[in-house]
Simulated assay, not measured.
Amino acid sequence: MPSSTWVASGEPEIRHSKTDTVVRFVKEKRETVIAASVVLVAAVILGAWFYLHYRQINDTAWKQLFIAQQTGFSGAYAESEKKLDEVVSGFSRSDAAPYAVMTKGDMLFRQEKYKEALEEYKKLVNGPAYMRPFAVYNTGKTREALALPAEAAADYRDFLAKYADHMLAPEVHFSLAAVQEKLGDAAGAKSTYEKIAILYPETSWSEAARQKTGQK
């Protein structure tokens, strides 16, 4: 005889499906489910509103930037700079704001207002990642225009240390070599020109570097 027995009660075991479980939970927690649904819907609506609102602001900022740039290119620098400042102050969180700062620096550089241009470029040295290489290079070119070759060389070296694979790298190498010549560092300049010929073969930069070193 078995040591223990099991006698069926005569009632079949009821197994609830996952759907039944969910339905029962909703019935039991009706108020909680409704409240959660309301919060979720509100969050979706609010998120959509913020997205559309931000996109609208961003589009407006880019339009204002375009107008400011065209104004500057026409020679109305003072008006252009005012409009660029408005983009920065009025749309500081938009993607257009850093470009407005860069454009203002370029406009000031065109007018040979190098000190003012330098201040604008310096604002972007630690700005958005996609703007930093251009800001560092422009900072170097502006210091070069201010007859500060040692500081310009430091900017160019900083660029090459951080952004060696950037599309501006060949030009930065060439600018560094030119500054080294101004500083009387003939050996350093020659080394930089030779590096350009090696790193960027079959380019206009390589050809110019070879001419500088007398290579063919």
Rank of each mutant, 00 (worst) to 15 (best):
T103Q: 13
G214K: 06
A42Q: 07
F50D: 05
P12V: 15
E144P: 00
A100N: 01
V44K: 14
A154Y: 01
F174S: 02
L183D: 07
H173S: 03
D158E: 14
L118W: 00
A42N: 06
L146N: 00
W205S: 01
L183C: 10
A35R: 04
Y77C: 00
W6C: 09
Y137E: 03
K115R: 10
P149M: 02
E202G: 01
F50A: 13
K190T: 06
G105C: 03
A78E: 12
Y121P: 04
E112W: 08
V101F: 02
N138H: 12
H173P: 01
V38E: 05
D185R: 05
K18W: 09
A187F: 11
A150D: 07
P149A: 00
E31T: 15
D155A: 09
T192S: 04
P170W: 09
P98S: 15
T21Y: 07
K29F: 14
N58M: 06
L84W: 09
G90F: 01
V44C: 13
V22H: 08
L46Y: 10
E202F: 06
E86A: 15
H53N: 15
P201V: 06
A8W: 12
S9E: 09
M107H: 06
K216V: 00
Q64H: 14
Q69Y: 12
Q211L: 11
P201H: 02
H166W: 04
T60Q: 14
K83W: 07
A186C: 08
S4T: 13
G188N: 10
L65E: 03
M107N: 08
Y121E: 05
Q70S: 14
V39N: 03
K190V: 09
K162V: 02
D155C: 11
K115F: 02
I14D: 08
L84H: 00
F73K: 10
Y77G: 01
K113E: 12
V172N: 08
S80N: 01
R132P: 08
G72P: 00
F134G: 01
F109R: 00
A178W: 05
Y130F: 13
Q64S: 15
A68G: 06
E81H: 03
F66R: 15
S94E: 02
D20E: 15
E120D: 03
K63S: 13
R93M: 09
Y163K: 02
L160C: 09
V22Y: 11
S4L: 09
A164V: 07
V23P: 04
A197W: 02
Q111I: 07
Q69G: 02
A187T: 14
K190I: 08
E194H: 11
A129R: 12
L46P: 00
S74A: 13
Q69P: 07
E202C: 07
V88E: 05
K141S: 09
H53W: 13
K82P: 01
T103S: 15
A117V: 04
A8S: 14
D106L: 14
Y51W: 15
A150V: 07
P201D: 04
K104H: 08
G184V: 05
P201G: 05
F66S: 14
Y163D: 00
G72S: 05
K216N: 08
E79W: 05
P12T: 10
F134L: 15
E171S: 10
R15T: 12
A97E: 03
